[in-house]
Each structure stands twice: as C-alpha cells, then as structure tokens.
C-alpha cells in the first residue's frame, strides 16, 4: 500500500544513475594520466596512488582542505549559536515586526551569491578580513543563519510550552533554562541544523573563491586554478575531487537516522 509497483527496479536504477558518475571519478583517480588519455578502461589496469601521494605531500594542496574545513566549522558554530535564541523567540513570542523579520531572513537565504560577490570583496577588504577564514565564514552566514533559524524554529515549536513554564516556576533563570533544558531537548534538531550549515558552507565556491587569495584559499578554488595552469592533469583533478566527497560522506553517515526528518526541516 505504501509504495508503487516495480519500486525495487526504480530504486536500483536511480541509485545506479547516482553512483555511476561518482564511480567514474574514483576510477579516474587511480589511473595514470597515460592510461586516462590513451585508452578507455572500465577499471584501472595499472592502479596507482601517485595522485593521492602528491596531494598529501604538497602543502599547497592539502592546506586547501584545512582552510575549507576551518571556515566551515567557524561558520557552523556562529550560525547555530546566533540562530538558537532567535528560533526560540520566533517560536514562542509575537513581537513588533516578527513576520517581516522572518521573511527578510528567508529572502536572504534565497539571495544569489553572485550578487554579493563584489560587495563582499569590498567590505571584507575594507575591514581587513580579506583572505582569512573569518571572511568566508561570515559571508556564508548570509544563507546559513536564516536556514538555521528556519530549521531550529520547527524543532523548538515541537517542544511543549508547558516545559518552559514548569522550568520557570521551578526558579530556572532564562539562560539556565535555555542551556540545561531546551538545548538537550532539541539536540537532534541542532544536529540537523549543523549538518545543513556544514553542507551549504562546504559546497559553496563562488564566495569562498572571491574572498580569498593565498592564505585561506579553499580546496575548491585550488582545484580550478591548478588544473588550468597544469593543462590536463585529469588524474590529479579526480583524486582531489574524491577527497572533497569524503567529509560529506562521513557527515551523512553520522546523521543518517535524522536525514529524513532533517530534510523536512523539522516541520512535517
């Protein structure tokens, strides 16, 4: 009753469609460049680790991964910590301009990064944050903070109001109630929100590339530049690509039980 006829076939076909391009990337990353260019092979006939070795030994490559992770983590922490109180306020209280504020936040989630690339460049150059992870982390707040508020608001609304009232009657102060009672209650929601902040900050390239030049260059930007300079080093490009998939795959594995409710943003 729940599902449709032929569902196993549909699911299998769709998963193959999803995995085939990724397989090709992985396959490519283990081939030598000579093999990639000269023959068409479905699996590496002369498997090599040379591309991975190069990435892990060359500082200009592996520092890119560290830079990326750095601004992603900073961004996630900022987004969650400012979004939590706001989510509580939106969920529990009515105040002057609340609906307009919520819409304004949401509209920032939808604003195209291309619009902000140039003004951000000017802004962060002017305040001296250009080419630091902080610039990228703050810039990514423009779409991650609204998203975090949106997700967390759904989860806070799922907590019965009676719990707040009981806690206040028991003499909890607001900050103590917030940290001791509310945060543990919506821990899974915080996990989901953090997952989304991680995800959108990790996959974004345009702002990250515009706001960095040398010191804080993200791996995504290093990939695009090195390839154009070195000609057609397909193997190296593929190996770098595979390594960018791994953090995402790890994060998914940790939140796999919450993925379904998480993608509904806590409001089914």
């Amino acid at each position: 009753m729940h599902s449709i006829p032929g569902r196993r076939v549909i699911m299998a076909l769709f998963l193959i469609f999803l995995l085939l391009p990724i397989y090709w990337l992985v396959n490519m990353s283990f081939k030598t460049n000579a093999e990639i260019v000269s023959t068409m092979t479905l699996w590496p006939h002369t498997p090599t680790l040379q591309h991975y070795r190069r990435i892990f030994t060359d500082e200009s490559w592996y520092s890119g991964y560290i830079n990326s992770l750095e601004y992603v983590v900073i961004n996630t922490i900022i987004s969650i910590s400012v979004a939590l109180p706001a989510a509580y306020a939106f969920s529990r209280y009515r105040f002057l301009g609340d609906k307009h504020l919520f819409f304004w936040l949401l509209s920032n989630r939808m604003a195209p990064a291309a619009v902000y690339a140039l003004p951000f460049f000017n802004l962060y150059s002017a305040i001296g944050l250009f080419d630091t992870p902080w610039a990228v982390a703050l810039a990514h707040c423009i779409f991650n903070v609204p998203l975090a508020v949106w997700i967390l608001e759904g989860f806070v609304s799922g907590v019965p109001r009676e719990i707040d009232e009981t806690a206040f009657l028991d003499g909890y102060s607001f900050p103590r109630f917030f940290i001791r009672i509310l945060v543990p209650l919506i821990a899974s929601g915080i996990g989901v929100a953090a997952f989304f902040c991680f995800m959108f900050s990790w996959v974004e390239l345009l702002l990250a590339r515009t706001l960095t030049s040398v010191q804080a260059k993200p791996i995504a930007a290093i990939m695009t530049r090195t390839v154009s300079a070195a000609g057609m080093d397909w193997g190296l490009l593929a190996a770098a690509g595979v390594l960018t998939i791994i953090p995402g795959a790890l994060v998914i594995w940790f939140v796999r039980n919450y993925i379904a409710s998480g993608f509904a943003l806590g409001r089914v």
Binding site: I22, M28, V203
Partner: peptide, 20 residues
C-alpha cells in the same frame, strides 16, 4: 546515505564529475 551523497559534493566538483 546514497541519496544524500550528491548533495554534499562541492558544486564545482559536481561540475568536474560531469565534465569527466
């Protein structure tokens, strides 16, 4: 997990995957 995988791939790598 497999369904969510493409969502976590940096967008330029998505481009690279399809280019390759």
């Amino acid at each position: 997990v497999i369904l969510a995988l493409p969502l976590l791939i940096p967008w330029n790598v998505v481009g690279t995957i399809w280019q390759i």
